[in-house]
Design a protein around this nucleic acid. Structure first.
Lengths: 197, 197
DNA sequence: CCGTCAAGACGATACGTCTCGTCTCGCTGT
DNA sequence: ACAGCGAGACGAGACGTATCGTCTTGACGG
């Protein structure tokens, strides 16, 4: 039933993932088919279905391969400036149609397929969120953030509105928008403001 | 080319929308087909394609019919309590598998089809956000919110994290989570805290 | 008034196309 | 020889279009 991974053809695997990424950026996710991936990769369809559950799993694998396991934020000592930089970068990524299409593709798959959601969360989303959380922890130790601020929640407060506006097309994604989010969140967690309940 | 709306059969229209909602809750969005809607409604396929562009448009119409054009939040004078109630209600809706499936369906369609995104935004999302914004304006006039707080952004700060966690399945949706968001946002906009940049 | 009639939406269904995922071939490398 | 491989045939099922005869509607003439 289950194929033996030791006999797997590494060349075919790489060709499939590369072809999937190419076709994704060329034609978009909706029109992407497993047969097209197989043809582009010079591979039989069955080789894809033998190792993946479908096109969603293939694309997730392809995207996850290009994401470093652990990434770190800059730490200039100025929390507001560092957060602005991260959110502005995310805004730029979402505003770029090419990159946006890629991210949107895997998000659709996450919505539709609960099994893939876990992998997408762990391999694509969490590394980004954890990096921001680490920066917030450093700020907390520096006394710039209230000691009892729920940092996981703060991270979601930063990225949640961004994803919300992007996914639901609820407005333009600009640097001013990113800065506005940062200002509000920084105000919420600044010690003098009393972020605790 | 375009059919005349005056000659439209109201019974068929209602039967189609009702059948779409029924099948949506019974079998889910992925397995939902236009042919099944037509069969359940006792209607020809062409009658659906005559008035809608596809199953996404049908479902959007069906959902929008059940949403009041203008809804208002409770105003007890306690901003924090009122916001908690709204976010707790939203959390409950997202946590309920039945209701969640319905909302998720139209969200998928919004992701995939840009034309539908506008309608979904105006008919489903905006009424909810505007109601919260109106409550925030009242709070601002009462001096509970900083005069220069960007209210549209504040609304997104409330709902963004909720949608983010729900769509990407990034954690459990609980009342505590809703309360935590409200506490942070209230801290960000409270006048003494200085929400301005 | 009321019968006639054309326009057009209706239910029903056949049709071709597309994609999916499975299955079946030889072929190849170990 | 055995298991994965490229290639592609195959059935299932959904899509969107086309076409059938029927039914409703509203305008017009007697």
């Amino acid at each position: 039933m289950t194929p033996q991974p030791t006999r797997r053809n590494e060349q075919s695997r790489r060709a499939i993932l590369a072809a999937a990424l190419e076709l994704l950026t060329e034609t978009g996710y909706q029109t992407l088919t497993v047969e097209a991936i197989a043809a582009r990769a010079g591979v039989g369809k069955q080789t894809i279905y033998r190792w993946w559950r479908g096109k969603g799993a293939v694309i997730l694998d392809a995207l996850a391969d290009n994401v470093p396991a652990a990434l770190a934020l800059p730490d200039t000592g100025d929390l507001r400036a560092d957060l602005r930089e991260v959110l502005r970068a995310t805004v730029a990524e979402f505003a770029d149609p090419r990159l946006s299409a890629t991210t949107r593709a895997i998000t659709i798959e996450t919505l539709a397929d609960e099994d893939l959601a876990g992998q997408a969360r762990d391999r694509l989303l969490r590394p980004q969120l954890n990096a921001v959380r680490a920066r917030l922890e450093a700020a907390r130790e520096a006394g710039q953030v209230s000691p009892d601020a729920p940092l996981d929640l703060v991270v979601e407060l930063l990225f949640g509105p961004l994803y919300h506006r992007w996914l639901l097309r609820n407005g333009p994604l600009t640097d001013d928008y990113a800065d506005g989010i940062v200002d509000l969140v920084v105000a919420a967690v600044t010690p003098s403001a009393g972020a605790g309940h």
